[in-house]
């Protein structure tokens, strides 16, 4: 727990590596560049860029069918767009995937008014029956592993909400 005040991309990458992630299926948002640069130089992980978030769930389902272990990295705005894909390719096919979701609009003090997507994010996940973990700083980082363990055990997608809107990434 190097720094409980912020979430570092190194900590996130470490979690992905320790959970034997093979592919990161992702669509970046404006503050993920530091994580991107780290992942790009990590030989054990292949980056799979998509152009709309719903594609991430079908790509992940295909990877999982072939024995790989993907993680999905998207923003909560894209999550809302992905509803049917999450239903069919994620939940329907019992794809054991963790989706790390940038929690745009979230602050530790409540849902921030600067972006209204925050108020829809958790109700959306609850409606879809998706369990989720909130990660706001390096002190929460082990929750990423909990999410991977839960996805594997229950054979379904699990979400990690990355609630560190203003620091290293997201």
């Amino acid at each position: 727990m190097s720094n409980e005040g912020s979430l570092s991309p190194e900590s996130v990458l470490s979690q992905l590596k320790s959970n034997n992630i093979t592919h990161v299926v992702w669509l970046p948002d404006s503050e993920t560049n530091w994580l991107y640069l780290l992942m790009k130089n990590e030989p054990s992980i292949e980056l799979v860029p998509v152009s709309r978030e719903g594609q991430a769930f079908s790509v992940a389902a295909g990877l999982a069918t072939g024995g790989k272990k993907p993680v999905i990295l998207i923003q909560n705005t894209g999550l809302l767009e992905s509803g049917d894909s999450l239903r069919g390719w994620g939940i329907g096919l019992k794809t054991p995937v963790v989706m790390m979701i940038g929690y745009r609009g979230w602050t530790r003090h409540g849902k921030n008014a600067f972006h209204d997507v925050a108020k829809f994010t958790e109700p959306f996940l609850i409606a879809m029956g998706i369990n989720y973990y909130l990660v706001e700083n390096d002190g929460d980082i082990d929750r990423i592993t909990y999410a991977f363990e839960e996805a594997d055990e229950n054979k379904k997608p699990v979400a990690v909400l990355v609630g560190d809107e203003y620091s290293s990434w997201n």
Binding site: H23, S58, V59, A61, G62, T65, G66, K68
Partner: peptide, 9 residues
Amino acid sequence: SYAFGLALA
């Protein structure tokens, strides 16, 4: 996208 993911795997 599904078939592509499988092909990658």
